[in-house]
């Protein structure tokens, strides 16, 4: 979707809201505890549910590492990618899947739900998310071409940068 040579991955307000509506609905429909979306590079895009006691930044980075590692494994045995990963714990389970080729959808659920239900709802939610990320990519492309991609950093000064470290 976005190659390494495109500039930044950009998220706009409109798509962010649409994404959150979808994962909030998925949270309810799947009876899940937490859902989060992570960019394949390990950056958290959004999270919903019982996230207060969760270190979502670390979760995001490790999830991306996990997907990268299993993706590497897949290639070694001649698969393109494992599109779904499932980790079963004593209380909580992790369902990890890839959306729109570059985004990772993580669902944490316990005995109030089931793998079958989560899988079913994720399938539906993924289709909606794919459309949103597709729209987002198109939007970024258009903005970039028109030279409108006004980076919030276009006007930063050396002082702004130095101040970050003071």
């Amino acid at each position: 979707m976005l190659g390494p040579n495109t500039s930044s991955f950009v998220m706009y307000d409109e798509e962010f809201k649409r994404i959150n509506l979808v994962i909030e609905k998925l949270l309810r429909d799947a009876n899940a505890k937490v859902i989060f979306l992570v960019d394949k590079n390990g950056q958290l895009i959004s999270s919903v549910g019982e996230t207060e006691h969760l270190d979502t930044t670390s979760l995001a980075s490790l999830t991306a590492g996990n997907i990268a590692a299993t993706g590497g494994l897949a290639k070694l045995i001649g698969e393109k990618e494992f599109s779904i990963l499932f980790h079963e714990g004593e209380k909580d389970n992790l369902h990890i899947s890839i959306v729109a080729e570059r985004v990772i959808l993580v669902v944490i659920f316990d005995q109030r739900s089931s793998l079958g239900l989560v899988r079913l709802r994720v399938k539906k939610g993924s289709e909606e998310l794919t459309q949103i990320f597709y729209d987002l990519a198109k939007k970024s492309e258009v903005q970039e071409k028109s030279g409108n991609a006004l980076s919030p950093f276009a006007e930063i000064t050396d002082d702004d940068i130095d101040n970050l470290f003071s």
């Binding site: 950009v10 998220m11 590079n41 950056q43 895009i45 919030p152």
Partner: peptide
Amino acid sequence: MSFINYASREINCKI
């Protein structure tokens, strides 16, 4: 690739 989020007004970079 940096990640600029206009919604949460964040920018993430990887070193």
